[in-house]
């Protein structure tokens, strides 16, 4: 899997919820730098962290992190 296949919508969810990066980081037990790196696409979180983030927004995890359509088979 290539490194650019993931679309990340975390920032949109965070801003909609009115949370700062610091507040979100505190809610899921990581540093603000980790949230920043995820939002910028520099770091792909573990399944555990992705689920914890989804729980904060009461949303399915695939709405926060979405796989880009595969160009080869059109899925």
């Amino acid at each position: 899997m290539r490194g650019t296949d993931l679309r990340i919508h975390l920032k949109r969810f965070r801003l909609s919820a009115g949370l700062t990066q610091e507040q979100l980081a505190e809610r899921v037990g990581v540093t603000r730098q980790t949230i920043l790196s995820i939002e910028k696409g520099r770091y792909k979180p573990s399944i555990e962290l992705a689920l914890a983030l989804a729980r904060v927004f009461d949303a399915p995890v695939e709405s926060l992190f979405e796989l880009a359509p595969d160009e080869e088979d059109g899925t």
Partner: peptide, 14 residues
């Protein structure tokens, strides 16, 4: 995932 610092990870890290 968590830092294991009782919710005060940043200060302990520093």
């Amino acid at each position: 995932m968590t830092r294991g610092t009782g919710g005060d990870g940043r200060r302990v890290f520093s």
